[in-house]
């Protein structure tokens, strides 16, 4: 289990434009290691694009990203993942034609060439995967094809898959989006537990109840950059935040 509460993620001057739209505009963010960081902001404020640039799913126009002291600005998404930064997607992404268990096994790290012939269904990894599936509550679906389970279950599977890679930092893009309220509670509890075990979280979320109760530190995005940051209670009453949200 991860104990790397000290792993840092720092982003400096990150920018990304789509045509004329500045989706992320000179964003500088230093996330609190070992804490639950929240990233909030109105629709279109650039949160998802920011995630994508940090994990190199898309190439930023400028700026630097430093993960655990290493400059990963020119790195690849898979290397960043192997360095301990896991992420989920806003529109849940799983491998639809694989079983739930196979979805989990994809995330097993393959440090050596032995992966070329070693069986995928390694007993030790199967046990680890079952552990995570049990933890998110879908272990009974192990053999089901992922495309056949419900959306809520797919979101849980995606989360379990991210955790299977044993990341020190977990970035979640709207973990509560599109799932029912009972499940939101379950996901919050899980995040809290995992954080207590030493994992850093960075959570983009529109559900304010969840953000306020869950997070240690909130970054408020507006027009591609953070305009305010602080503990939830403080941010909640910040006039700039109210302005951004109400669009005055």
């Amino acid at each position: 289990m991860s104990t790397g509460s000290g792993v840092t993620l720092e982003v400096h001057g990150l920018s990304k434009s789509f045509g004329g739209v500045k989706a992320v505009d000179d964003a500088t963010v230093e996330f609190l290691p070992g804490k639950i960081n929240a990233l909030i902001g109105p629709n279109g404020s650039g949160k998802t694009t920011f995630f994508n640039c940090v994990t190199r799913m898309i190439k930023a126009d400028s700026g630097t990203v430093t993960l655990a002291g290493k400059d990963v600005t020119r790195s690849t998404p898979d290397r960043i993942a192997r360095l301990g930064l896991g992420r989920s997607f806003q529109v849940c992404r799983i491998f639809p034609r694989m079983t739930v268990m196979e979805n989990m096994l994809v995330a097993v790290r393959n440090p050596t060439v032995s992966a070329l012939w070693r069986g995928a269904h390694d007993p030790e990894q199967l046990e680890r995967a079952r552990g995570w599936l049990r933890r998110v509550g879908i272990d009974h679906l192990e053999h089901a094809e992922a495309r056949n389970i419900s959306y809520g279950q797919q979101k849980l599977l995606e989360l379990a898959g991210v955790l299977m890679a044993d990341p020190e930092i977990v970035m979640l893009d709207e973990p509560a989006g599109g799932v029912n309220p009972a499940l939101i509670g379950r996901i919050s509890t899980l995040i809290r537990e995992l954080n207590a075990e030493g994992r850093t979280f960075i959570v983009v979320e529109h559900n304010m109840d969840m953000v306020m109760s869950l997070s240690d530190h909130v970054f408020v995005f507006d027009r591609g950059r953070p305009i305010a940051a602080g503990p939830p209670a403080e941010v909640q009453s910040d006039p700039r935040v109210l302005e951004a949200y109400l669009g005055v």
Binding site: M57, P77, F95, M98, N110, A115, G119, G161
Partner: peptide
């Protein structure tokens, strides 16, 4: 049947997702 094969099949399903999970695609 190998781990490597699991990574390849993940590429077939969703290459970017596979990369996000650390598969050296």
């Amino acid at each position: 049947r190998s781990r490597f094969g699991m990574g390849l099949k993940a590429v077939r399903e969703d290459e970017d997702k596979a990369r996000a999970l650390g598969v050296p695609t």
